[in-house]
């Protein structure tokens, strides 16, 4: 059960991390300078941003996820990273407790 929750936490952390990175990429594309109407992609082709002037003087914006595969891959990678970090943290804590049990003066 504990392991299941670790996996769930890692998946959620990975999802929020992927969401954050994707949003940050779009914001960076928004504020970077390029020729008007240029279609810009970021995050390994995962997100896109395009701003174009229309004949009536208004502007059209196209933004969002271009390729969901990239997003999902990023999610999986981040989830695995989070899970490995949790495992390592748990292992280090147990190691420290083991040391403290053998050497009470370390507490």
């Amino acid at each position: 059960m504990k392991r299941l929750f670790q996996v769930l936490n890692a998946v959620l952390a990975g999802f929020v991390g992927a969401l954050l990175l994707a949003t940050a990429s779009i914001l960076m594309l928004m504020f970077s300078t390029r020729a008007p109407g240029t279609r810009a992609v970021g995050l390994f082709g995962g997100v896109l941003f395009q701003a174009a002037d229309r004949s009536d003087g208004s502007m059209t914006l196209e933004l969002g996820v271009e390729n969901w595969t990239g997003f999902v891959v990023l999610w999986v990678v981040l989830s695995v990273l989070a899970f490995v970090s949790m495992l390592m943290f748990g292992w280090l804590r147990r190691y420290r407790e083991g040391l403290a049990a053998n050497r009470p003066d370390l507490e």
């Binding site: 929020v16 969401l19 954050l20 994707a22 949003t23 997100v47 933004l63 969002g64 996820v65």
Partner: peptide, 11 residues
Amino acid sequence: SIGAMVGVLQV
């Protein structure tokens, strides 16, 4: 924050 991110990503 999540709502804003979802809005930007046009989910």
